[in-house]
Amino acid sequence: MAEPRSPVSASVPHNPIVLAAPEGSTLEMDPIEFTLRKRLPRKLPKRRNDVYVNMKTDFKAQLARCQKLLDAHREICIHGLGLAINRAINIALQLQTSSQGALQLAANTSTVELIDDLEPEDPDEAGEHLTRTRNNSAIHIKVFYPNP
């Protein structure tokens, strides 16, 4: 499941989180006063043979979708971000075993920059909206039939 967007509330221990403010300086903020809103990861234009794997859709459905795409295309690209990396690998390996070795895999990893917005609880007094960036890992697996 997607991680719940935790309104940083009392359940979070009181260790101050370190923020990279837009100006580049680091600030220490009391987490109680802010609401954390995660923005969506950057979305690149999608080809027909791109599959973005997520953790909400049923695993079997995603596998079936890839299988169907492989009937029409010679290669497909499976992308997974963060928690979904595991699943992306799993899907690729399942595809390979079910094809009895006809398919080949080529995996690439990358880092994706994600943006979080911190909205102050009391917007009239606190200064600006803060934005912080963090990195997350991603995997891109090319599943293809090798040229004869």
Partner: peptide
């Protein structure tokens, strides 16, 4: 009311 969220005076 501030309870319903930002007001006209929100700094941004």
């Amino acid at each position: 009311s501030k309870q319903t969220g930002p007001t006209f005076a929100a700094s941004v």
